[in-house]
Every structure is written in C-alpha cells, then in structure tokens.
Write a protein that binds this DNA or RNA. Structure first.
Lengths: 134, 134
DNA sequence: AAACTAAATAAGAATATTTCTGATTTAGCG
DNA sequence: CGCTAAATCAGAAATATTCTTATTTAGTTT
C-alpha cells in the first residue's frame, strides 16, 4: 500500500478498496468481479475507475494481467517479483504458480538470430477441485 | 480445399477465396487483414463472413487462432497437425513454429492432482528482421 | 485551517472486436 | 430445373475496454 504513496500517487478510498479486494483473495479477478465487490462499498463507482487503477498497478508491477482466450482479462496482485507463470481455474480464477518458464528451454534454440524477442506468454487452464468442468 | 466438401460444407467463392488468401502467405492474419484482401475480389463481403469461415476452419482444425494480449486475434492455416507453438512477429504476423511444448516439462510436476487441466497457451512475441521494434 | 494543485473520479460517449438476427441467396444434389 | 440446407448480407447487438470533459479530492503549502 505504501508503494503507491512513494511513487507520487494518491491513496484514495477507492484505490485503497481495490487493493484490499485483491489482497483479500489471492486469485485472478475479472474487472467485473472487482467492480461488483467495490460497489458494495461505493455504489456509484465506475468501470473506468477499476480499469484505471488496474492499469496503474500493472504498470507499477504490482498486478499481473492474464489475457484469456475469450476476450477478457483477469488480474491478480503479485508481490512475488520473480518471474513465473500460472495455472488458472477457469471457473473461479484460483491460481497456482508454475515456477518453470519455457523460455529457458527456448533460449538455446537460436531463435533470437531471426527475431528480436520482446515477450512471451505461458498459461495453463483448467478447473480446480471445487469447479467441475462445464 | 477438398476437406471442406468432404465434411458436407459448400465451397463458395468467398470461402475458397479466404482459403486462397491464407494459402498465399504463411503467416498469422488478423480478421481485418483478411477482410481487406477479400474485398479486392468481393467488394461487398461482410466481416461476418470472414469470422464465420475462420470459425469453421478452426473447428475443423485447419486454422490456428492466436489470441493476442491487445484483445485481437490472428489466424493462420495450419496443415502440420502435430502440436506446436509459435513465435510471432507483432509487426507483420510472420511466424516461426516452435517444436517444443512446455507441457512436457509440466506433466511431471503433479499439478493434475489439484487441477483438471483442459488447455494451455504458449506464445513468443517479437519483431522479425524486416519489422523493427516500435 | 483555508487555499492550492496535480491526481483521481464520474458519466457517458466512443472504439474495437466479435457474435447474433432475420431475410435473402446459392451450392450441390436429385 | 427445382429443392434444401448451407452460406451470405445488412445491420443490430454484445462485450470489453478506453477516451473526453467537467468535477472532486488527497496531499501539500501558506
């Protein structure tokens, strides 16, 4: 929470509430889920506020965004700064961290002669014990 | 092309043209790029037709869809049926196939006790020699 | 404590991508 | 040639996200 003030950002009630929501459940949230939860405390809060804050937190490296195949994204607080990937439950958003990164395997393949590699994505999808497959 | 007829699908001029466009350049296309190219031959063709045909081809396993982080997708004809991943140029859509799948590394980790794994995605992004980084 | 300023928010419009609806056309077949 | 299911069109609709302008607010200064 103090990271925000340090970087010259204001700690508004809504911003604090969004961080608290993310802190309370360590899973990947959709923007809509966050909005619904946030409206319990601030009934008139806008979607824009959710996205603006998620964007700020993402930019600061405090939030991880996972882009799903259906056009939506999920967001999760991410204090462990070391690089990792996720296994995500498509039902509830619960995640497991995967300590392996496939780029280690890739780096020896000489792909970088032909391409300037700027990023990668590795995500595993499934359903946790509580959420049965649809 | 004959796969379509065999499965009881009609080979319309527009469908044929879409496949020909994909055949002509072996890269990942955006839906809009395909539409523009298609309109050179059929000026009044609709977006719907592009998406409908891509969806059909994807469902038949003839086309690979790559969902990008910016909310859009790219599509590529995909005759090599063996499982692989891609390195994609974010400028022009040119791709390199990556024969490695990180799931091989993952399968020994015992994640499947906790999750029923239904899918995964591994994509590497970059810029090819022709497209310099923005 | 009042004033100030840059940051944050509200409200709703705008954008982009993709899907749907209902009417019309067409490919392939008998 | 005529039939029928599949494909297409035109435009509306759904979805997710971003932008615009005016207003409010947190943190600082006086």
């Amino acid at each position: 929470m103090q990271e925000l003030g340090a970087a010259g950002h204001k700690l508004t009630g809504k911003r604090r509430a969004i961080v608290e929501i993310l802190l309370a459940e360590e899973r990947h949230w959709t923007a809509k889920e966050i909005l619904v939860k946030l409206r319990a405390r601030f009934p008139a809060v806008s979607f824009d506020t959710v996205y603006r804050n998620l964007s700020l937190l993402k930019q600061m490296g405090l939030v991880h965004e996972m882009v799903l195949g259906d056009g939506g994204s999920r967001y999760k607080l991410c204090y462990s700064q070391d690089h990792h990937h996720h296994l995500v439950c498509l039902g509830c958003g619960q995640t497991l961290e995967i300590p392996v990164c496939p780029m280690q395997q890739i780096s020896g393949m000489g792909l970088s002669c032909k391409f300037k590699i700027t990023g990668h994505r590795f995500e595993v999808y499934g359903y946790c014990e509580g959420c049965s497959s649809p």
